[in-house]
Design a protein around this nucleic acid. Structure first.
Length: 875
RNA sequence: GGGCCCUUAGCUCAGCUGGUUCAGAGCACCUGUCUUACAAACAGGGGGUCGCAGGUUCGAACCCUGCAGGGCCCACCA
């Protein structure tokens, strides 16, 4: 059989994915085993796969495959999110490109378009995940607008409303004038912007004087209803009880006193616009000020804007500044950099605005969620996020959950009148009607009299139920799946949505199930480009993962992604990493080719082969042990690197070189089968990271129909290993390296035999046959006493010599020896100083002191020998 | 404004509760090789006063303080 010398991912990936799928290996149903569950963070239904998805889904796949092979009932639930605001924006843009405005459509028509869009693009991303090898239980796909989930969301809303946690209120919210909806505090990011601070003067009524104040938003003077000064501010004591005239608006407003005012800032006077600033709003409430909202929903000025009505807020700002200047109200303007709240969605500057919205009280919900992380019931990995989490939870505000959008979960509120309390919250129209009749006292109310709330819920209001709702645990709290799979084990996600999503899921877990949703949260890094910039569509710096898979293979992309992905750190992604992954795949492929082409002969197992097997078996067990520790600590990339080195350096470069028969010879049956066994163990360990390649090789090892699939085999357990043996082997490798170096320096071909004399001070003979094998033609001769020349290497206390004048450059050798002596003397000095220090002897633990003594003795011994060699070389 | 984190080889990062020669790994680089699994490879090699300055300690990459540079999160100072 002719096996190509390069691994071809295209020939294997689809084949094995289909095979796994058809045999139901990803499928999970409750049974007697322990469950291991991950719910996938649902990507936007209309999204396409980007590197961030590759990262966190590869991590999830590694974890889920590991659990599967460790005997758990592994269940990975995939799904997508309707992503209310993001999807709606996309649909709006899409329609606009076709010449249709959202306002041209009825709500029903628009939603129909949105569904069409979602169906067309929906699930692309999940299909793409299959290319990556994601072993999700695809029969469990969920969508946050599925019937079950919709009903769950509604129930959750009604439930929280009935528990008094959801309320409708007229409060300050974040208004996005572009998207024309409110957004939550978490969706507002404060971006530093260069602006101006305008000093304006307002005439004081009854005095021939002005009061000067500073503002960044001169256009809002049209909504001013007061000027505030600090009560203790002597400078303005004379203004007490006076009123001022708002320029342009010509309205008379009070001058009030409030401790909120910072005397140091600006002039110490603050104009108060209760409708358009959170602080002003609070001050307004304290002083019962009038609220004048001057903006339309799109951010243009309304009738209160007078002759600026209809102008956009920023255009109005320029014009008003001009008018103020012309009329002498502008004292000066200075450059001023400040943080401006902007919508994460549209980038528009947020307009703080008073509005009637739905809110969820968070304080009580946060308590158990805070506790869960504090007491370790839910562990954040890395733990550094716990502090941020705590901080956020402690300062949590009520959550504005209503959105003025059409695509999303409708709010289950029904209005039967115009009064602020003329509504009911219910699971459906029938129940609503029933309740409305009761609440209104009007038994004749008809369904048509009820008006459904036009708003939808914040996307995260469905997402926060995800670990519960995917198992239908809201509607049917004690169903078999729910009790079996919940709480889940690991959640893998980006730290960006720690507050948006993770924290809220924990709250929902306790609110609805009295139980955490998961035990560990692995927070990945953020994938950046080589230059450290966040990957984004607009920068065009995000490689298309599917193209990468085409080019390098899925396994290689997984490896490339994981190689530099420590938890919580940003990772600058470089395509070269995929190349490294591909090369690694090829390396393993060729190891397979080697083993596969061996012909079995009749001979007995040579000593070197037996020793190689014994060493590598120990080494493998050591590595497996270390891997378990890596996984326990979620050091996934460290685990991969460990395997990479184990396979490349230990298995390929050393073990296979030891095991393989001399050229032209056949291999003995025992070594061949032991090698295959070791190879298979390696494949199992590596399967998590490189599922396709490993399955392919494993299947090729199998005889037809002999066994099913690598994906469902048992992970090899780490058995006890002999560390001394591993170290002894290390000494032998040092000798081999030296011999190879010697050959290369002296240009001695491998065909020429090297005779090596060993001045033996301690016995390391165990692996001598291995040395001889690895060093090609070499023979070791043990001698007592002095040997002429300089040793080419020392391993432990032994020295290895190659006789022959021509082999040694005396001068260079002496220089080398002297340099080494200098180094050793420096070292000795340090140790000496340590040992001379009475405090050290007294206070350091005995083992450390003993070690120091040993170091001292060893160094002295080595120096003595080196000096002797220098003498010898002189002769 | 508050809080958190980072700074170790050209790059990306390990370095667990201070203690064996602890200064590491991978990649990149340099020099040889198409050697009988693999040039997507093999063999060999160079490279860092652990950001800076103090301090604690018998002993510091590791603990403390200050400084410099970089990043992140939170926040209603006009």
């Amino acid at each position: 059989m002719n096996i190509p010398s390069r691994y071809d991912p295209k020939a294997t990936e689809d084949k094995w994915y289909t095979y796994w799928l058809e045999n139901g290996y990803f499928r999970s149903r409750p049974d007697g085993r322990k469950p291991y569950t991950i719910v996938m963070p649902p990507p936007n239904v209309t999204g396409v796969l980007h590197m961030g998805h590759v990262l966190n889904n590869t991590l999830q796949d590694v974890l889920i495959r590991r659990a599967r092979m460790a005997g758990y009932n592994a269940c990975w639930v995939p799904g997508t999110d309707h992503a209310s605001i993001a999807t709606e924006a996309k649909v709006v843009a899409h329609l606009r490109a076709k010449g249709i405005e959202k306002s041209d459509l009825s709500r029903a028509e628009f939603v129909k378009h949105a569904w069409a869009w979602a169906h067309k693009h929906g699930g692309i991303i999940l299909e793409q995940l299959k290319k990556l090898g994601a072993s999700c239980d695809w029969a469990r796909i969920r969508f946050t607008l599925d019937e079950v989930l919709c009903e769950s969301v509604t129930r959750a809303f009604v439930d929280l409303y009935e528990r008094g946690l959801i309320y409708r209120g007229y409060r300050m919210v974040n208004w996005d004038p572009q998207a024309q909806t409110t957004i939550s505090d978490e969706e507002v990011s404060h971006v530093e912007k260069r602006g101006k601070l305008y000093y304006l003067r307002y005439p004081i009524k009854g005095l021939n004087a002005f009061v000067t104040l500073a503002t960044t938003r001169p256009e809002t003077i049209l909504g001013d209803t007061a000027i505030a000064v600090h009560p203790d501010d002597e400078r303005y004591a004379h203004l007490r009880g006076k009123t001022a005239i708002v320029p342009i608006a010509n309205r008379e407003i009070q001058i009030i006193q409030d401790e909120y005012v910072d005397r140091e800032f600006g002039t110490g006077c603050l104009k108060i616009t209760p409708a358009h600033d959170v602080n002003d709003s609070e001050i307004g409430d304290r002083h019962q000020l009038e609220i004048i909202d001057i903006f339309n929903e799109d951010g243009s000025l309304n009738a209160h804007g007078r002759h600026y009505e209809g102008k956009d807020r920023f255009a109005a700002r320029r014009l008003i500044v001009k008018e103020l200047q012309e009329k002498g109200f502008l004292v000066r303007e200075v450059d001023y950099a400040h943080k401006v709240g902007t919508s994460e969605r549209t980038g528009a500057v947020i307009e703080p605005k008073r509005s009637i919205q739905w809110f969820l009280k968070m304080k009580d919900l946060a308590k158990p969620a805070l506790e869960a992380v504090s007491n370790g019931a839910v562990a954040l990995v890395p733990a550094k996020f716990e502090r941020a989490y705590r901080h956020w939870m402690e300062g949590i505000h009520d959550w504005n959950i209503s959105r003025q959008l059409w695509w999303g979960h409708p709010i289950p509120a029904y209005y039967y009148g115009e009064g602020p309390a003329d509504f009911v919250v219910a699971q459906g129209p029938e129940k609503a009607l029933e309740q409305a009749r009761k609440k209104s006292g009007n038994p004749d109310l008809q369904a048509a009299d009820l008006k459904r709330d036009p708003d939808v819920l914040d996307t995260w209001f469905s997402a926060w139920l995800w670990p519960i709702s995917v198992f239908d645990g809201i509607r049917r709290p004690d169903n078999a799946e729910m009790t079996y799979y919940y709480p889940t084990q690991d959640l893998v996600t980006a730290p960006e949505i720690l507050f948006f999503w993770v924290a809220r899921m924990i709250m929902a877990g306790y609110a609805f199930k009295r139980q955490k949703p998961f035990s560990q949260v692995y927070l990945t890094g953020i994938v950046r480009d080589k230059r450290g910039r966040k990957m984004s569509k607009s920068l065009g710096n995000s490689p298309d993962p599917i193209a990468l898979i085409e080019r390098y293979g899925a396994d290689a992309v997984r490896v490339g992604m994981l190689l530099t992905a420590p938890a919580g750190n940003d990772l600058p992604f470089d395509e070269a990493l995929c190349l490294q992954g591909r090369n690694f795949a090829n390396k393993i492929w060729n190891a397979f080719r080697l083993v596969q082409r061996w012909e079995i002969g009749e001979k007995r197992q040579p000593d070197y082969a037996a020793l190689g097997v014994s060493w590598f078996t120990n080494r493998l067990n050591q590595a497996l042990h270390q891997l378990e520790r890596d996984f326990k600590a979620y050091r996934i990339s460290a685990a991969l690197m460990r395997l990479y080195k184990l396979i490349w350096n230990d298995f390929c470069a050393l073990y296979l070189e030891i095991a393989k028969p001399p050229y032209g010879e056949k291999i003995d049956a025992k070594t061949a089968s032991q090698t295959r066994q070791l190879f298979e163990d390696i494949l199992k360990a590596l399967h998590l990271f490189m599922p396709f390649l490993t399955e392919e090789i494993w299947q090729r090892f199998a005889r037809r129909g002999e066994r099913e699939a690598l994906i469902i085999t048992d992970m090899p357990e780490s058995k006890p290993y002999d560390e001394k043996l591993i170290r002894a082997f290390g000494f032998s490798v040092q000798v081999v390296s030296a011999l190879r170096h010697f050959r290369s320096e002296k240009n001695i071909p491998n065909a020429e035999k090297l005779t090596v004399f060993v001045s033996e001070r301690e016995t390391h003979r165990h692996f001598d046959p291995v040395i001889c094998k690895l060093a090609q033609l070499a023979e070791l001769r043990y001698v007592d006493g002095k040997i002429d020349g300089a040793p080419i290497v020392r391993a432990g206390l032994n020295e290895y010599f190659i006789p022959g004048e021509e082999a040694v450059d005396t001068r260079a050798e002496r220089a080398k020896a002297r340099a080494e002596i200098t180094h050793l003397q420096g070292f000795l000095k340090r140790v000496q100083k340590e040992l001379d220090n009475a405090d050290f002897i007294d206070r350091a633990p005995e083992s450390v002191v003993a070690a120091a003594r040993k170091k001292q003795a060893d160094a002295r011994e080595k120096i003595k020998r080196l000096q002797r060699h220098i003498e010898d070389l002189k002769g």
